[in-house]
Design a protein around this nucleic acid. Structure first.
Lengths: 267, 267
DNA sequence: CGACAGATTGACTGGGTTCAACTTAAGTGG
DNA sequence: CCACTTAAGTTGAACCCAGTCAATCTGTCG
C-alpha cells in the first residue's frame, strides 16, 4: 500500500486514517496508459476534473505565439492538478506528458466528495497545493535571478527531493524522464546551453549522467552550488519534526507591521 | 460603497449579496498606514492571518544569498494574500510595501469564518486566488521566454487591467507606484536595462511617462507588442459575459486523453 | 539497415549586465 | 527659504553570458 505514490506524498504532508488510505487507493484504482508527448488537457479546454499521475512525468506548459514553450511545472507520480479547477471554465495552460505515463482522471464530482467528506484528505491535498505554489515561486526565482548553472542544479536537487518523497529516488540518484529540451523550457534556457551547463556540472563533479540516470555523488556540494534549501517542499505539515526554522536570528516580535504602523481612522 | 477596492474586485469575479458586501466592508473597516519599504511579514515568520491592501502597492518577494531580490507578485488595492495560509507555519517568502499603503490585517479566525459562513465571499476569494495563480504563471512565461521589452510591456498591460478592475486606472493610463528597480526585480532584469527598455517603448510611441504616471496612447498597439491577452485576469467567473474563448478552433472532443489513452488494469 | 529523436560540440553574434558618472527630484532641517 | 542629503532616474562604454546557427554523433526502434 505504501508504494502508492499519492498515498506516500499525502501522508508525508498530513496524517491519513486507514479509511482515508482505502478511499484514495480506490479513487486511483483505474489508471490509463498515455504515450509520450500527449496532452491531457489543452489551453482553453474546460476542465472536467483532476488528473493524477501514477507513473512517468508530465508537465504544465504554455506555448507562445512564436512557438516557444515555457514549462510551468513538472508533474511526477503522486502529483495532481488544481483542486479548485472546477471553478474555472477554461484552462489558461496545457498539461501534457513528457514520458509514457499512467494517469488517473478524477471527475469534478469525485474531487468534491473527497474534499467534503474526508477532511484528512482535504487537508493533505490543500497542503500539497500550497507546496506546489511554493515550488512555482522557486521557479520564478530560478529563472529570474539565478545563473544558468545554478538553475539546473536547483531543479536537479528539487527533483531528487520530490522523487524521494514518493520512493522513486535513492540517496544517490534517480531516473529523470526528461529531455534536455524539457529542462531548457523549464529553466528559460536553450537546449544547447542546458547541454553545456550539465557538462560543466559534470566537470565540477557535482553530477554524473548515464542515459536518463542522474547520480549525485555529493549532495551537500550540489545543494550548495544550487543554493538549494529543501524546506519549501514540505514547509507545511503539522508534524513538528518538519517544522522549518527559516530564519536563524529569531525575531523578538514577528511582525514589523505592528511596530511601524500608524493606526488610521477607518472608513 | 463601490469605491471599496476589495468589493469591486470580488464582485467582478462572482456575484455578492448585499449582506456579503456589508460584511466585507466591516472586515476592512480599520486600515493601518504603513510607510514605504516596510515588511508586513518576513520569510520564516508564522502567518497569523491575511493582509489586505486598500491603498498603495506592495509585493511578495524573496531575497537571495547574494542580496538579489526577486519580486513574485505585485499587490494592489483589493489584493490579499493566501487564504490557506493558516495551514502553514512558516512563510516561504516575504511581503513588503513598495509605496505608502493602507493595509488591513485579518486574523486567521476571521478568515475562516468568512469562508465558512459566507459561501458567496468564499467563492469569490477562491476565484481571486486562482487568478493570482494564473498571473504567477504569466510571470514565469514572462521571465522565461519573452524579450525584455515585451516583458515590460506585458507587465504594464497587466497593471492597467488590474488597476482598472478596482477603479484606479482610466482607459488611457494610471499611476504606477513602483520604482524602476521594483520593475527590474519583477521581470528578472537590471534597473539600467529597465530604463533603456522603457525608453525604447516610449520611442516607439507605445507609452508616455511623466513621473509615476503611465499613459498609454494606443492600448491595442501596446497589447500587440506585449503579446498580452487579458483573459487570464478574469478567466474565472460564472458570468457568461466573462466566459473566455481561448481557442478559436473549437475542439471536437475536449480531451486527447480519451483518444490517445489505452486502458490499463488497475492495481 | 535506415530513420529519427536526442545529445554534443564549435564558431559567431548579440542582448543584457556591469561599472561608473551624472542628472533630476524630493525631501529635511537649520 | 535655501543648503544639504538622499533616492531615483538617465546615459555611456566595455564586457560577457547565453543564444543562434549548423554540423556531427549516438542511441534506439521498426
Amino acid at each position: 500500500m505504501l508504494d502508492h505514490p499519492l498515498l506516500r506524498k499525502l501522508a508525508a504532508l498530513s496524517p491519513l486514517s486507514d479509511e482515508d488510505r482505502r478511499h484514495l487507493t480506490q479513487v486511483a484504482a483505474h489508471p490509463v496508459a498515455v504515450p509520450t508527448r500527449t496532452d491531457l488537457i489543452r489551453e482553453g479546454d474546460t476542465p472536467r476534473g483532476v488528473f493524477l499521475v501514477l507513473e512517468g512525468m508530465a508537465c504544465r506548459y504554455k506555448i507562445l505565439p512564436d512557438g516557444n514553450r515555457q514549462v510551468l511545472a513538472f508533474l511526477i507520480p503522486g502529483d495532481f492538478c488544481d483542486l479548485d479547477v472546477s471553478l474555472l471554465n477554461a484552462m489558461d495552460h496545457a498539461i501534457g506528458t513528457l514520458s509514457p505515463c499512467l494517469v488517473v482522471h478524477i471527475p469534478t464530482r469525485t474531487v468534491g466528495d473527497l474534499l467534503d467528506d474526508h477532511p484528512g484528505i482535504a487537508r493533505a491535498m490543500r497542503l500539497a497545493a500550497l507546496v506546489e505554489a511554493a515550488t512555482a515561486r522557486q521557479w520564478l526565482v530560478n529563472v529570474g535571478r539565478r545563473s544558468c548553472e545554478r538553475r539546473l542544479a536547483h531543479i536537479l536537487c528539487e527533483m531528487l527531493v520530490r522523487l524521494r518523497h514518493v520512493g522513486l529516488a535513492s540517496d544517490v540518484g534517480y531516473d529523470l524522464l526528461l529531455t534536455q529540451v524539457d529542462l531548457a523550457d523549464a529553466t528559460g534556457m536553450t537546449s544547447v546551453h542546458v547541454n553545456r551547463s550539465l557538462r560543466a556540472l559534470r566537470r565540477r563533479g557535482l553530477i554524473e549522467i548515464q542515459g536518463r540516470r542522474i547520480a549525485i555523488p555529493d549532495l551537500a556540494a550540489l545543494e550548495a552550488a544550487a543554493e538549494f534549501d529543501p524546506r519549501y517542499l514540505r514547509h507545511a505539515g503539522t508534524d513538528p519534526r518538519l517544522r522549518p526554522g527559516l530564519r536563524e536570528t529569531a525575531p523578538p516580535d514577528a511582525s514589523v507591521f505592528r511596530e511601524a504602523a500608524l493606526p488610521v481612522d477607518g472608513a
